[in-house]
Design a protein around this nucleic acid. Sequence first.
DNA 1: TAAATGACTTAGG
DNA 2: CCCTAAGCCATTT
Length: 115
Amino acid sequence: MPSSPTPFRERVYAVVRSIPRGRVLSYGDVAALVGSPRAARGVGAALNRLEPEHDVPWWRVVNRDGRLTIPPHHGLRALQRTLLEREGVAFDRGGGVILERFAWDGPESDLRDTP
DNA sequence: TAAATGACTTAGG
DNA sequence: CCCTAAGCCATTT
């Protein structure tokens, strides 16, 4: 039997799971990596609907400016910053991640040896 | 099947 | 740096 195509949501989870500890990716970056460069909002929707039991490091996904865009009333916004700082990710004065230091280059950068 | 929703992004002011 | 308006898209009603 032919294998059913992997749902968008599952592909998002797979990519997010691949983000190294102490690194971040933007919603748009994840969207591009799953093959839908314009589906940044879809990525947010997928992470927002994570089930209670999961192994997806959702806190490693921030917006394009490194800022946290989870609505404050969720309570998860503060948690995200805490989890990131625990991994060594530093924030600037504006409350955003310092992308110049913690943005992940992508899956392909891992295999490459820097001379 | 259509309308509404939101953890986005871009362009302007 | 903060705010608004419009465009985009997967998911939910």
